[in-house]
Each structure stands twice: as structure tokens, then as C-alpha cells.
Nucleic acid binder design. Structure first.
Length: 1010
RNA sequence: GGGCGCUUAGCUCAGUUGGCUAGAGCACCUGCCUUACAAGCAGGGGGUCGGGGGUUCAAGUCCCUCAGCGCCCACCA
């Protein structure tokens, strides 16, 4: 007995039932011992940050992944969708710091490290649960038995192992570099955590007096003028640089200037980096340049490089909070003018210094200048380049033991060796083994790797993977023999070789032993001492304890979040341990993510996948659009324009949300999602989007079509089906379905979403509902036809559900269950055997039935439809109520009349005509409206309004003439006839003929009206 | 500064390799509660595809150029 089915689709109930069915069946679980004939299909989720709940971008990202996973699962592959979350170092720590400040009035430094990490941990627990719940609500068929977290034990082991291996291979080194310092939060920021903002600022032109005036072209020159946007940094200037090709260089290079305020004597050096002045240039640097560049190695990355080239002194004049200070490396702040500046904030100091130059008449000029300034994405203050010691990964250094596997050549057009980390990521792309969809993103990835710089991986944070390196300062055993330190203690060296790992600070080598590796730096702050860095492999806690007892100190810093994310495709599968999951599912098939992390994440996973496992982690990378609000702005908390997927699920249903998101997914790079406040049934006012109405309407339509099926499929007997009894509408719908199945499968193969979904939409709504179901109604009341109609209806609906399931899993499952109850066997004898599982999600994907494609049937039905539309047009024009039957007749060629007569019942039913006479040569009765439907003249009787008639025919005439004109033009153009493809010319001729015949008919009718 | 993308109906967007009178959804107008569906049905109005130039028998679709918008990357003299 069919259940009572409401006319409005109730997503809440259906979603809950389907979710329970799936969980009970354990269908999401990936079996690593499976021998599925279609092989495996795996995706690792881009782990959402545990900073906050998921937003609509995640909903899109995960919908697309679920579509692929569900589709492949139905195709018979053993699928694994690996779920999990990312600890997101700085971002999470920052939100927790904010919460603690707000709730307890305490700063991070008010806690012990363990205590603070505990607070972050509980934040993580809260949001991880929330995120996983959101994913489940969306219907994501992740393997929930395998949920990972980038800091869980499994992932942590992978991180430790990889760090150790990199260290052992001499790829990790200690470097002094300028980092992006956020003086407000007093942390280092990664490059990607710096936002560039256009700032309206100034160029100040300062005169620096020469120690000794020089003669240039007969003129006495007693100063040089430098231009700067950051006057406060001049306190740390240790040189003035000029281009060697500058005509003045000969006289000036080697001279000294006395730095104002400080009184320091600094050299003038020659460096190609300096841009020659050229007021006419389009290049801002040349336009504003004086030819002299103040060099502040401690406070500017460019200057740092210049400093390295000329061995300049590095003087840091700021404290970590951005104030001017003589406590962090500035030793000659003795002049009273300099003393005055100490303690000032950097921007205060800027003004004070400019004032000083003005007062001293050394300020030559001030010019407006708009430029990009890096800001902290957290505190939004300008970042300060700041000198500090950091851990780095050498990305272009050849890795000897990978030479055989990956080659040693320098990749063409780059300076990247194939067996360097950058090479490992770049080569598969160049060889076409790694593909981006859409293709244009390939370039992003390639350019980034070609210009890659060493990767700074340490972060001055508490939340993250603590760097597994212990340090000990010890007195040099003897000068010039640094390498013997402690070696006796570790009797069985595995490898021992000298490696230069850093340009600036040469280490004495990397020494590898059983469970640890170390290198040592010859220099130490303490004279006669050296510093030893020892990295300990995973699983050696006892050894670590021993080290600490001996006075070794573990590095406080943690690793960049991306270091652990880079391992995600295999750390989640238990690497480095050998196991079946890894063997079975690595490499995965595709990564589905947003373009903003192509470089940060995608490339690093490829790099580390190659380095650790020896294979790229996926062959395809699908990049989807970014979701913006109705005004084209990024969705963000601060703008209040975000949409919570759970809210969308409440307002429209999970399937509706998924449908809309997939439907918007084309190759475009941004999509807009208008945001509107709506009121939920429970009274909550929330942000959602009217765009989800599309999806909701579709689900409702689907629901009601199935409702119709439920009312008509009672007693469906598969044995009563006989392919010979199919009528034209059956053949037509099967032909349409056959085309749809192929289009959907092909579309998904090509990572299209909107296209296949649209194909099903049109088939389901426009063909199946609008025509087939309507035509099936009388057949359902006719015992002679009922069995055939029932079987076809059940079959087509079943196939529609399966095609839709990856997109809208809940509702299709709900209907599938109903269908299983009422018509369990839905195959069509002689056409297609169908097996249905307990759940649609494990039922086979529709196979191609291209043998059912029937062009003649489709053409015939098109004629029938056009006649019906013509009659409906007249009915609508004369406001004839649907319930009223009107008499009509039609005339056409003998052949066409035969077709129409055969199918007159179809026309009569959906056009509301009766009686309906069809014959060649029939004349238009008086008081009938005439419509030209292709080759057919249709007369709707008893309609009396000559004026209306004239109007309509006139309109149709214009329409046809509009079609004739360009065709005539083309065909009278000899070039077209001779040069265009013959079939195009033929097509045009046929079309023209048809239109001319229509025109003649219309004109005849018009003439008859008088 | 480098790279990428967008500009098609009132709104949000499709338009594959250039080729039938440029499409969809929403909104709008008219008529319908027709026994699955008013979150629906039937019918209808509305764009010459940002501006300009070029290639071609033929351009929304290729090339050049101008304008506007957006994103990513980049060491802020």
C-alpha cells in the first residue's frame, strides 16, 4: 500500500531517514581489502580549519567531492573519501587568544604553554565536532571511521618522520632572515598571512652629508639624497647604494656619508639592484629614484640581500613591539637626537625623524606616493620586516638518493633540479601526469614552483607540531675540529657527509645516526662555543628524555601549518607505516579545492608525496569557484554576509543547497550568491540565499513526480512487460533518457557539474514531467496499456533517481525506498536488467542504453508537440479555460496527416481538442483561428475575432520573415555558397524553403481574413 | 610589477571545436487550484552579447585595442 505522501517535500524527515539508512548500512566505509572490479577511487578532503564552523565555500567544495565519490561508488569502485580537519596554527591560536582575552581578560603569556594549548585543544574539540556534524548534515559520504586531524597521533608521526628525513637529507637548515613580523600580536606571519593593501603615503627625500665632499663634473658635491617611504628605518642604515653604471658612481663609490641623527659613518656601495633615476619612466621606482638607496639590512628584505652581497653590518633598531629601541642590536644610539627617539612607536618616530630633517634643512622634498603595504591579516597593522632565526627547507637543493628515481637534470627554462623538492613537484606537471581542471590554473602552479624560494617553516607559536630539534651549546673541543663533537657517543653512523645547507650560515655537516641526526653551527653568540642541533626521529621518547636531562633544550617553535597539510594524502593513511589502506588507496584520484591554495597546499602535497611515498598524490586537481556575495565581495564574518550551510539546510534542505551549488558550478572562477535575511518557520531570522529556491523547487518537483508514481505503480508486474508493446511515447522517453544518461556520464568524467545536472533537469522536468507523465495518465486507466506504462514509468524514474543521486542524495534515497516498496523490480525485459540495492547509493550507475536512441520517434514527437503548442497558443489568446474542449482540424501532406492521425489522441489530450479532424487538403472553416505549426496547418474552430486573428498572424508573419531575411542574404552570397561547408549550405536551403512555405500559408490565411 | 579571469535579458548565470531566428532560472505580464506538484501548469514580453577595430562566406565564440570590475602572486626606495 502506498504511503500517505505530502505534496510538499519535507526535507527534514527524509534527510534523517536516509542518513540513518546509510549509517546502518555502513556504506561510507572504504574496505582496504576490497577487490572491487572497478578498482579504487579515493579523495582526501581539504581539511577545514578548526578555527570556525564551515561556510558556504566549504559546502560547495564538499558537495562537489561528494558528487564524484557517490558517482564512482555507484559505478562500482571501492571508494574512500578521507575526512578530517586541520589545526591551522596561527589562525586557531589567534581566535583562542581573542576568546581568552574576552572571557577571562588574560593574554597567552599569562598561561603556561601546556595550559594554553589545553585551551586551544578544547576549542578544537568544539569546532571539530561542529564541522564534522555540518559535513554529515550535508550528506557527505566520508568514511567516518577514518576521521583524521593534522595533529592527531597518526599525522604527528608522519610529521616527525618527514621532518627527520628532511633533516637527515640536509634539506633543513637554520637561517637568519627577515620575517614578516606583526608588532601587534608579536608573531611571525607566513607570506600568505600578509595582506597587501594600497596605502596613500609619501616619499621623503633626505640629504645625507658626505664625509668628504667630492668633485663631479666640476661641481662640488657635499651630500647624497636618498628617497624613503619609511624614514624610521634610517636609524639602522649601514650603507648607501648606487648603481655602478650611474655616471656619479666613479666619484662616489667608496666614499662615506655620515648618517644624520645617529652620526654613524657608512659606506657608499655599488649594487646593480639600485634603479637609475628617470623622471619620464613608467616605472615608479625609476621615477622617484634619486639614484641613491639607503640600505637598512635589518629592516628591509631587499636591503638584507644587498647587505649580504657587501657584507654590511646589520643593525636592528626596533623592539618586537615595533618601538625604537637600542636593546636589540643597536649599539651606537649615543647621540642625544637618537636617545630622544628611543621608546617611540615606529610611526611616532617616523614623524619625529621627518621633523628633524625639516628643521635641519636636510629634507629636500616630500612627494605623494601610493603603494602596496603588507598588513597582518590578523591584527591589520602594517607588518614589519624583522630579523630573526628561523628553520628553512631548501627547495632547490638536489637530493642525492632520489637522483636515480627522478633524474638530476635541470628542468627546462628554470634553475630547478629534477631531484630537488621543487623539481619533484614541477616535473609531473611538465610531463602531463598532473592535470588541472580548468586548465588555466596550470600556469599558477608552474610559475610558483619555477620561482620558488626556500620555505621558512618555523612559527613562534604554541599551537602546532613542536619542532623535533634539541639544541646544546658547548665549548669547542678544539679549534678547526668541530665535527668530532660527541661522535663517540653514537657509534654507528648510518651516513656521514658534509653538506652545505645554508648560504649565510654554513653548517659543519649533517650527521645521521640510528634515531637522530644533527648538525652544528660553528658560530655562536658565545666566543669559543658551538651550537649543536639534533633532530630526533619519531618514537624515541626515552632518548628525548635523556637528552633533556643532559641539558639539551627543545626548540620552542612549531612548524608551519602547511608542513603537516603537505603530508595529508598519506599521513591520513598511516604513512610511514606500511599498511593496506595506503597500498590500496594511495595515490588518490583527484584533489578538489579552491584556487587560493594551489601554491601553498596543492604543490606541497605533490612535493612531499613524491619525496615521502615516491608518487604524486593525485593525477587530477579540480579547482572550483570562489563564492562571493551579491555584490561580489568575499563572504566573511566581519562583513556579516556569510551563509552557514546548516542555515541553508534549515531554510531549503540539504539537497536544495547541493543542487544549487552544483548547478552554479561552471568553469568560471567566481560565483555570486545574493544573501538575504529570511525568517525560518521557527522564527529565527537568518542569512540565506534566494538562490537556493531553485534547488528547493526542483526537489519539490521530484517529490511530486514520485508521488504520482506512487499513486500509479501499485501492482506493477515486470513480467507483464513486453518491449513489442511500447508505444511512441514510451519509445520517445527511452530515447531521451538514453541521450541523457550518456550526457551525464560524459559530463562527470570531464569534471563538469552544471552541464550534467542541467541535462537531467531538462530531461526530468521538460520531457518526463511535462510530456511523458501527462500522456501516461489515460494509459494508467486503460488495462490494455497499463502494464507497459507502469514498467516504463518505474524504469525511467529509477534511472532519473540514480542519475541525480550524487547531486541530491537524500531525496533520491527517500524516493528510491518508496519505489522499492511498490515496484521492487524495475528492469525492462529485453532492454535493461536492473539491480537495486538496499540503498540507492550502492545501486549501479545507469548504463548506457544508446540502442534506444530513435531519431525518427523524436522527430515525430516534436511535430506532435508543436501542433499541441500551436493549439495552446490559440486557447491562451482567447482565454479558453483548460477544462473546455474545442473542436479543431489540421491539414498537411498525406504523410504528415498519417503521423498526426496515429497520434491524434496525444494531441487531443494535451491540447484539449475534440473532435479533431485531420486530412490532407482540409480547408480552414469560417470562424476558425489558423496557426502554422511547421508544415502543419492547424485550425481551432469557433473562435471569432478577426482583429485578434490578424494581429496574431501578423506577428507570426513578422517572425517568419525575420528568419527568412538572413537566409536569403546568405544564399544569394556566392562566397557563402562556394566556401561554407556543403552541409551548412544545404541546411540553410532547407530551412529557407520551410520558412517560405510557412510564410505562404500565413499570407493565405491573412488574405482570407480580408 | 607579474599572472589570471569577468563584462550576454531587470537580477544570477549557460553558451564545447566560429555555422539553424542567442538560452536557463529568478523577476515581470496574461490565464488557470486541469484527479503528482500554485515551491505548480499553460501562454507571453524582454538582450544584438562592455566600446572600437580586424580575420572570415560566417564571430557572443578567434586576434588587436580601449574602458570598467574582480582575484591570485610579488622583497612597502
Amino acid at each position: 500500500m502506498a504511503r500517505e505522501i505530502p505534496t510538499i517535500y519535507d526535507s527534514t524527515a527524509v534527510e534523517a531517514e536516509a542518513a540513518k539508512l546509510w549509517a546502518d548500512g555502513h556504506y561510507f566505509h572504504a574496505d582496504e581489502t576490497s577487490e572491487a572490479p572497478k578498482g579504487t577511487y579515493a579523495i582526501v578532503i581539504p581539511p577545514p580549519n578548526v578555527t570556525a564552523a564551515l561556510h558556504l565555500g566549504h559546502a560547495l567544495n564538499n558537495t562537489l567531492q561528494d558528487v564524484l565519490i557517490r558517482w564512482r561508488r555507484m559505478q562500482g569502485a571501492e571508494t574512500l573519501w578521507m575526512p578530517g580537519t586541520d589545526h591551522a596554527g596561527i589562525a586557531t591560536q589567534t581566535v583562542v587568544e581573542k576568546r581568552l582575552l574576552a572571557e577571562q581578560g588574560k593574554r597567552r603569556t599569562d598561561f603556561q604553554r601546556d595550559e594554553f594549548v589545553g585551551h586551544v585543544q578544547s576549542w578544537k574539540d568544539e569546532y571539530e565536532a561542529c564541522i564534522l556534524g555540518q559535513l554529515q548534515s550535508m550528506g557527505c559520504s566520508c568514511d567516518w571511521d577514518r576521521v583524521r586531524f593534522t595533529m592527531d597521533e597518526t599525522c604527528a608521526k608522519a610529521v616527525r618522520t618527514n621532518f627527520f628525513n628532511l633533516f637527515k637529507d640536509g634539506l633543513i637548515y637554520r637561517g637568519k632572515r627577515l620575517v614578516n613580523w606583526d608588532p601587534a600580536t608579536q608573531t611571525v606571519l607566513a607570506d600568505d598571512e600578509v595582506e597587501h593593501q594600497n596605502v596613500q603615503g609619501f616619499f621623503w627625500y633626505f640629504q645625507y652629508p658626505l664625509e668628504t665632499p667630492v668633485e663631479i663634473d666640476g661641481q662640488t658635491v657635499d651630500h647624497v639624497t636618498v628617497a624613503t617611504t619609511r624614514p624610521e628605518t634610517m636609524l639602522g642604515d649601514t650603507a648607501v647604494a648606487m648603481n655602478p653604471s650611474d655616471p656619479r658612481a666613479k666619484a662616489l663609490v667608496g666614499q662615506k656619508v655620515r648618517l644624520p641623527i645617529v652620526g654613524r659613518l657608512i659606506p657608499i656601495v655599488a649594487d646593480e639592484h639600485v634603479v637609475l633615476p628617470n623622471p619620464e619612466s613608467d616605472d615608479d621606482k625609476a621615477k622617484f629614484s634619486t639614484g641613491f638607496l639607503k640600505v637598512t639590512p635589518a629592516h628591509d628584505p631587499d636591503d638584507w640581500q644587498i647587505g649580504l652581497r657587501h657584507d654590511l653590518e646589520v643593525i636592528n633598531v626596533m623592539a618586537p613591539d615595533g618601538s625604537i629601541s637600542d636593546k636589540h642590536g643597536w649599539e651606537d644610539a649615543t647621540a642625544p637626537e637618537a636617545q630622544n627617539l628611543l621608546g617611540m612607536d615606529r610611526f611616532e618616530a617616523r614623524e619625529a625623524i621627518v621633523d628633524w630633517f625639516r628643521t635641519e634643512k636636510l629634507l629636500e622634498e616630500v612627494r605623494d606616493y601610493a603603494h602596496e603595504v603588507g598588513h597582518s591579516y590578523r591584527s591589520h597593522v602594517p607588518i614589519e620586516p624583522y630579523l630573526s632565526d628561523q628553520w628553512y627547507i631548501a627547495v632547490k637543493k638536489p637530493i642525492d638518493h632520489l637522483a636515480e628515481k627522478f633524474g638530476t637534470e635541470i628542468l627546462e627554462g628554470t634553475d630547478v633540479p629534477a631531484n630537488s623538492l621543487a623539481g619533484l613537484a614541477l616535473k609531473p606537471l611538465l610531463e602531463g601526469r598532473l592535470k588541472f581542471y580548468p586548465e588555466r590554473y596550470t600556469k599558477n602552479y608552474q610559475l610558483w614552483l619555477e620561482n620558488l624560494r626556500d620555505w621558512p617553516i618555523s612559527r613562534q607559536l604554541w599551537w602546532g607540531h613542536q619542532i623535533p630539534v634539541w639544541t646544546l651549546d658547548m665549548q669547542c673541543p678544539s679549534e678547526g675540529d668541530l665535527t668530532l663533537v660527541e661522535e663517540d657517543e653514537y657509534p654507528e653512523p648510518v651516513i656521514s657527509e658534509m653538506q652545505e645547507v645554508a648560504e649565510e650560515q654554513e653548517t659543519t655537516g649533517v650527521f645521521n645516526f640510528g634515531n637522530h641526526a644533527h648538525f652544528q653551527l660553528p658560530h655562536s653568540e658565545k666566543e669559543g662555543w658551538i651550537r649543536i642541533y639534533k633532530c630526533v626521529d619519531a618514537g624515541n621518547q626515552e632518548y628525548e628524555k635523556k637528552l633533556e636531562e643532559q641539558g639539551w633544550v627543545r626548540d620552542d617553535d612549531v612548524l608551519d601549518t602547511w608542513f603537516s597539510s603537505a603530508l595529508w594524502p598519506f599521513s591520513t593513511m598511516g604513512w610511514p607505516d606500511e599498511n593496506d589502506t595506503l597500498k590500496k588507496f594511495y595515490p588518490t584520484q583527484v584533489l578538489c579545492t579552491a584556487r587560493e591554495i594551489i601554491t601553498l597546499w596543492v604543490s606541497r602535497m605533490v612535493m612531499m608525496g613524491q619525496y615521502c611515498v615516491g608518487e604524486i598524490p593525485y593525477s587530477d586537481v579540480y579547482i572550483h569557484a570562489m563564492i562571493q556575495d551579491g555584490q561580489g565581495r568575499k563572504m566573511s564574518k566581519s562583513l556579516g554576509n556569510g551563509i552557514d550551510p546548516l542555515v541553508a539546510i534549515d531554510s531549503h534542505g540539504a539537497d536544495a543547497m547541493r543542487f544549487t551549488l552544483a548547478n552554479m558550478t561552471t568553469d568560471t572562477q567566481d560565483v555570486r550568491m545574493p544573501v538575504a535575511e529570511i525568517e525560518l518557520p521557527d522564527g529565527r531570522k537568518v542569512n540565506s540565499s534566494p538562490k537556493f529556491d531553485n534547488g528547493r523547487n526542483f526537489c519539490n518537483k521530484l517529490w511530486n513526480a514520485s508521488r504520482f508514481a506512487m499513486l500509479n505503480l501499485e501492482g506493477t508486474d515486470p513480467n507483464a512487460f513486453d518491449a513489442a508493446k511500447l508505444d511512441i511515447t514510451d519509445k520517445w522517453i527511452l530515447s531521451r533518457l538514453a541521450k541523457t544518461i550518456d550526457a551525464v556520464t560524459e559530463g562527470l568524467e570531464a569534471y563538469k557539474y552544471n552541464e550534467p545536472l542541467n541535462e537531467i533537469y531538462k530531461f526530468f522536468w521538460n520531457d518526463f514531467c511535462d510530456w511523458y507523465l501527462e500522456w501516461s495518465k489515460p494509459r494508467m486507466q486503460d488495462d490494455a496499456q497499463k502494464a507497459t506504462a507502469q514498467n516504463v514509468l518505474a524504469f525511467v524514474l529509477d534511472q532519473v533517481l540514480r542519475l541525480l543521486h550524487p547531486f541530491v542524495p537524500f531525496i533520491t534515497e527517500g524516493i528510491f525506498q518508496n519505489l522499492n516498496a511498490i515496484a521492487p523490480n524495475r528492469g525492462l525485459n529485453g532492454i535493461m536488467e536492473l539491480t537495486a540495492g538496499k540503498s540507492i547509493m550502492i545501486s549501479p550507475w545507469p548504463e548506457s542504453i544508446s540502442g534506444q536512441i530513435d531519431a525518427q520517434v523524436e522527430a515525430d514527437i516534436e511535430v506532435v508537440q508543436s501542433v499541441i503548442r500551436s493549439i495552446r497558443e490559440v486557447r491562451s489568446q482567447y482565454n479558453i479555460p483548460p477544462s473546455k474542449k474545442v473542436p479543431a482540424s489540421a491539414s498537411a501532406s498525406e504523410a504528415m496527416c498519417g503521423l498526426l492521425n496515429t497520434n491524434s489522441a496525444l494531441i487531443g489530450q494535451l491540447a484539449g481538442v475534440a473532435p479533431f479532424e485531420i486530412a490532407a487538403g482540409l480547408e480552414k472553416p469560417d470562424n476558425a483561428a489558423a496557426v502554422v505549426a511547421g508544415e502543419v496547418q492547424v485550425y481551432v474552430h469557433d473562435v471569432i475575432d478577426p482583429d485578434e486573428e490578424r494581429k496574431r498572424l501578423q506577428k507570426q508573419k513578422e517572425f517568419v520573415e525575420k528568419g527568412i531575411r538572413p537566409l536569403e542574404g546568405k544564399l544569394s552570397n556566392e562566397n557563402f555558397v562556394s566556401r561554407a561547408k556543403p552541409e551548412v549550405v544545404e541546411q540553410s536551403r532547407a530551412k529557407l524553403k520551410e520558412l517560405q512555405e510557412q510564410l505562404a500559408a500565413i499570407e493565405k490565411h491573412l488574405a482570407e481574413l480580408g
